[in-house]
């Protein structure tokens, strides 16, 4: 059994206008030596899906169905105390725009020791030693342990966030858009760090991003999400070389690259649907160039093609 198994997960937000199906019947798994990339446009439900793994979904949102099995236990049915112990220790998460998530009036060292003291029975002195080691681990000198967040640049703050997230040796790390909004050089330095940590700590990672090239540099396996659903899952290399689902194909064709010949790019017509009232049948059909009648009527199920799991009617 894989480390994390998400099965038929459904998360709806109950608003006055009706239920927004943010995550609708999503399944994926992460094994002990895997890096899974979740990719999709904003509003496709990728952040909501991983929020459920940490049980962060709050009203008006609700997990209405499915299972999240982490190391044999179902997260959805855990007690609040069990969840508290799990967060930070079992699964840790670095949030989107994490640079702004640091407490501005607390030294970074204090913020690292907080997590450690919460989960482990060690003395304060030991926890400060650990905090220093954590800073060294992410490439910041231990002498900066008494610095405040404003003394760090954006990329350095993100490093501190990673130091906090890995402080208690979690068994799964979730990174939600960790490099978005950072400059390319800083971005590259962070990706190198993430790859190094993954190898050194043998840490499975779920990597959420809207950026195809970031996935290409970090993840072994990818799940493409569209309008609350996963439409294709495959190994990264195979997905980039032979995308099967029309949405994956379109996404890759819309992405400019700096390497090689300058090639023509194609935008995807239209915009993602509103999830309060998603299209009937395949959710991508209004934007799909290959849509036929069945796509407008029936939801496609997952089928295997070239080792990819794809939800598209075009596969027989």
């Amino acid at each position: 059994m894989a480390l994390l198994e998400v099965e038929n997960l459904k998360i709806y937000y109950f608003t006055r206008e009706g239920a927004v199906k943010a995550v609708d019947d999503v399944s994926f798994s992460v094994d002990r030596d895997e890096t899974l990339g979740l990719i999709g446009e904003s509003g496709c439900g990728k952040t909501t899906a991983v929020f459920a793994i940490m049980r962060f979904v709050a009203p008006p949102g609700r997990i209405v169905g499915g299972k999240i099995i982490f190391d044999g236990n179902d997260i959805i049915t855990m007690s609040n105390e069990e969840i508290r112990l799990l967060r930070g220790k079992g699964i840790a998460m670095v949030f989107q725009a994490a640079q702004n998530a640091l407490n501005p009036v607390m030294t970074v060292g204090k913020q690292i020791t907080e997590v450690i003291l919460e989960h482990e029975r060690i003395t304060k002195e030991e926890s400060w030693e650990r905090a220093k080691r954590q800073l060294e681990l992410v490439g910041i000198g231990s002498e900066r342990v008494k610095n405040y967040p404003h003394e760090f640049s954006g990329g350095m703050k993100q490093r501190v966030m990673i130091a906090i997230a890995t402080a208690c040796n979690p068994r799964l790390l979730i990174l939600d858009e960790p490099v978005t909004g950072l400059d390319v050089i800083v971005q590259r330095q962070l990706l190198t760090l993430i790859n190094k940590l993954r190898k050194e700590l043998r840490l499975p990672i779920i990597f959420i991003t809207h950026d195809l090239s970031v996935i290409a540099e970090t993840c072994g396996k990818v799940a493409v999400m569209y309008a609350g659903k996963i439409v294709e899952q495959a190994s990264t290399v195979s997905l980039y070389e032979n995308p099967v689902h029309p949405y994956s194909q379109a996404l890759i064709r819309a992405y400019p690259s700096i390497k090689g010949e300058k090639r023509g790019l194609k935008s995807i017509p239209g915009a993602p649907p509103r999830l309060i009232n998603p299209p009937i049948g395949c959710r991508f059909h209004p934007r799909c160039p290959y849509a036929v009648n069945i796509c407008r009527e029936e939801e496609p199920i997952f089928r295997k093609k070239n080792g990819h799991l794809v939800a598209c009617h075009s596969i027989k």
Partner: peptide, 12 residues
């Protein structure tokens, strides 16, 4: 050289 490339076969 820092610009990420959407090609998993290219090494950093």
């Amino acid at each position: 050289s820092a610009v990420p490339v959407p090609d998993p076969t290219v090494k950093m």
